[in-house]
């Protein structure tokens, strides 16, 4: 029964993290964006600096009518948000937070598992784009697919570089074999991974698939209420997952002073810093055009990641 209890506890912990961390990122985004633009951001909900704004938003979303357009493919339209959201929940469970098994569940091929499952989420956007029976949604869906295809590859290659360095695909294994100089050694790979991840999440400056000035809100144009909220939740859960993964793969996860006792804090701290950078980039840069987006992936990120793989391989063989 002890085992069952452990499992239940982990499940609850993962679910709570899945629901709370994206909200934290979202609220931080509200405030950071506001201050970077010389504004205050939400100030009323919850009293102190509008901390409950996203909770209020959630309540509002739940009360809104769920409109399914008459021309839409009803079933697929309604299913799409779930398909977009669930992969991130699955990924969250294998990300190690601290040493000594402080992880939802260690999976041997963890890195590969993460990359494979994250790729499934795009199906949600594609389904939404097609099923909405809306030109703008369809265009958004197409752009999403093209973007995923362009950026999944550099992500895979950069992740492969880390796997080479560590000699394992297990995420806790990768963190355990980390040394501080890896960050420099894998710097190019880390940058490529983070950038490609941003693009996969369709975060600015890579938000062409949801470019509001061109195609309203891309694949999510027709969504209202709770289903729309789930798409948003998926985006922020994606930020958490991406930052967590970058931390684990390139920044040494729980490594830091007193890692034995407060290792989990280091992981969370590094993840938070990365999430801040995600927001910061959103405020600072304009959106890339669609062809620039494609060109950037194929002519910049992929060559860099190939160079990184060569570098990793040579260094590894020489030092071993």
């Amino acid at each position: 029964m002890n085992d069952t209890l452990h499992v239940v506890l982990r499940l609850v912990a993962v679910l709570v993290a899945f629901l709370v961390l994206p909200l934290l990122v979202g609220q931080t985004e509200h405030k950071v964006m506001a201050h970077m633009q010389g504004r205050l951001g939400p100030m009323y909900a919850g009293g102190f600096h509008g901390w409950a704004q996203l909770v209020a938003d959630g309540v509002k979303f739940a009360q809104k009518e769920d409109v399914v357009p008459a021309d839409a493919d009803r079933r697929i339209f309604q299913l799409a948000p779930a398909v977009a959201l669930l992969p991130y929940l699955l990924v969250l469970i294998v990300i190690p937070v601290g040493p000594h098994g402080f992880v939802g569940e260690a999976v041997d091929a963890g890195l590969f598992f993460v990359l494979a499952v994250m790729g499934v989420g795009v199906l949600g956007s594609l389904m939404a784009g097609w099923a909405s029976a809306n030109k703008f949604s369809l265009l958004g869906g197409l752009r999403t697919a093209a973007q995923l295809m362009a950026y999944e590859l550099p992500m895979l290659l950069a992740a492969a570089s880390v796997a080479m360095a560590a000699g394992t695909l297990s995420l806790p294994g990768i963190v355990e074999s980390y040394h501080w100089w890896w960050t420099l050694w894998q710097l190019m790979g880390g940058l490529v991974f983070f950038t490609a991840g941003l693009a996969e999440l369709q975060r600015p400056p890579f938000d062409m698939p949801v470019a509001d000035s061109e195609i309203i809100f891309g694949a999510y144009t027709e969504y209202t209420g709770l289903r729309f909220a789930l798409f948003l939740l998926a985006e922020y859960a994606g930020i958490v997952v991406l930052c967590g993964l970058t931390t684990v793969l390139f920044l040494g996860g729980w490594h830091g002073p007193w890692a034995g006792s407060v290792g989990w804090l280091w992981t969370l701290l590094k993840t938070a810093v990365l999430a801040f950078i995600v927001i910061w980039l959103r405020v600072s840069y304009p959106r890339l055009r669609e062809d620039q987006l494609m060109k950037f992936a194929w002519t910049v990120l992929i060559p860099i990641s190939l160079v990184q793989i060569a570098l990793t391989g040579v260094v590894k063989v020489v030092t071993s």
Binding site: L89, L90, G104
Partner: peptide, 17 residues
């Protein structure tokens, strides 16, 4: 054991939705 937990998470996710 590991993958049954992963499967359970999937079930929990579906339940949540």
């Amino acid at each position: 054991h590991g993958y049954s937990v992963v499967g359970l998470v999937a079930v929990v996710g579906v339940l949540f939705v």
